[in-house]
Nucleic acid binder design. Sequence first.
DNA 1: TTGTATGCGTTATCAT
DNA 2: ATGATAACGCATACAA
Lengths: 337, 337
Amino acid sequence: MVTLKEIARQCGVSVASVSKAINHMPGVGAQTAQRIRDTARALGYLPNAAAQALKTNRSFNIGVLLEDDDNHGLLHQFFVSVLDGFRVVMEEQGYDLMLMNRTVGKRTISYLEHCRHSNLDGVFVACIDFSDPELLELANANVPLVSIDHTYEGHHSVYSDNVDGVYQAVLYAHERGHRRIAYISGAPAGVTSKRLEGYHKALSELGIAPRADYHVYSRYRDIHRTYAATQQLLALKEPPTCILMPDDYASHGGQLAIQNAGLRVPQDISIIGFDGLEYFKFISPRLSTVAQNATAIGEQAARLLLLAIENRGKDIPGQSVKLPVMFIKGETVAPPN
Amino acid sequence: MVTLKEIARQCGVSVASVSKAINHMPGVGAQTAQRIRDTARALGYLPNAAAQALKTNRSFNIGVLLEDDDNHGLLHQFFVSVLDGFRVVMEEQGYDLMLMNRTVGKRTISYLEHCRHSNLDGVFVACIDFSDPELLELANANVPLVSIDHTYEGHHSVYSDNVDGVYQAVLYAHERGHRRIAYISGAPAGVTSKRLEGYHKALSELGIAPRADYHVYSRYRDIHRTYAATQQLLALKEPPTCILMPDDYASHGGQLAIQNAGLRVPQDISIIGFDGLEYFKFISPRLSTVAQNATAIGEQAARLLLLAIENRGKDIPGQSVKLPVMFIKGETVAPPN
DNA sequence: TTGTATGCGTTATCAT
DNA sequence: ATGATAACGCATACAA
């Protein structure tokens, strides 16, 4: 391994000068600096990240928290898309992303402990259960952090305009003739209440009285529960003609329930998703849905986190960035029969 | 930050003793060791990963290479599923996963350079283009490495039984009455030729003469090219009655081409995918496909990589593990009309 | 059993 | 402008 010492030896200068030259710091002559940099390049010198981290307390590593109930957040396509956008921007700035686990050596540690252990410069949080005490511990510590779909006091966050998304969806259903519009929401959470807000706002503007039996809970990305919730709605004496699903993926459960009830989408029952997952563009009928701009969310999150890192310790107020969504008409909303 | 020194001070012993005690090394009395460990726990001591890495040349970090043409490998559901399995096993052993980028500081570096820079203990490679010179450079260096779907000389690898997968698929199509079975393959690669081998093996056993015009190339996960390839097959004077697609995702392109030709799946044309992506279980008609056990592949890869890491430098021969696939009947193969 | 000392590769302070 | 040196936190060879 080529080290500063090696370069110093070859150039006949001190390690200190080499360090200065390579980092473009003052205190070394222009021509010596150039000579040093040239031989460094010639030798294929690369700084040792561990040594740098040890010395500077900066690792240029970002922790990624993709948590869900099953601890398999990587399988959430929406979050992974967000992560991909996040990653591109972070990489441009020379940061590496580290999937945070909770085992160090043979021991289980908390997220915060992992942060300290690995000298993480910041953390990206996208998950389901934001009330996890470990996340709160992390948020209360002084670690630069950015979260998606949830705001932690004093930290940056970014999320879609959930209110507007569901609002638009309901307006569209109404426009197509629906009056009995039901909402299957995800588990209680910040986004959930925002989406419900959009639902009620639209109903209210349209002069439709909200019905308690038209709002049932499922969970995000939960096909089974959404199946059950849909069944429940279909069993009503006066079933809805259009159902808003927790999200695209969960809508599979709704579709199955509708099919198994001997009904068709959208001729008998219309459905609308949320997320705008890529693959739904290719399956028939194309899902009507509220598309989130996952990539933009990730990119924005990256910029905010970089900001937080640069201003570390300065106690900058956390800012929330809200990104627009786009309603996609698709083919799963038809006039009620 | 709690350091060894701090614990040493509180316990009135030397740093060396603390280190030994915490690492359960001999050379420290049982009771003192216990006392040291107790106060370490009480103080919430955590080793500094950077210092450990610097000292031991072990980072307990694994580099993850998920490359595709667009450099957005995270969006490949199959590979992400493999990665998820990989991650679970690696985490159990206390390893962290790092998404390898190619920018350090303001400079672009090679994968190998990144490995050295970050002191990675090993690398996980799952991607499309295994002939990337940077990957070859990495494989030729002495970095523990495990790859999916491709074998690098001297390294471990794991892959599905691709021959058998396509073989089974063709047998099934034949069983359902198909004689004109076409194959749209992915870009030339190890897996591709294995799958083609299965295709030809089955045809040969069934006494069906392979036709050159029934084999066309597309690329994996490429909907557009697969659309075009399907069109090409449908335009033949004697079009196939069953088409094997490069993979599940690409099959969307095939389906669209078939639809746009005014034909139906599977009544007019049968199709078979490859991979067994989760979401295809929920869309209708359910895709007939060859399911790979992504999780098992990832887990197996992890075990092999751990082996390679433990035997680092010992020049152990690379082993290839082949995992069985499972043909899923689905609903997209019907008797030809 | 315990402690001292050294070095991993870097950065940064302070002489020269 | 340059270099000697300390320190980051830890592991380990060696001395006591």
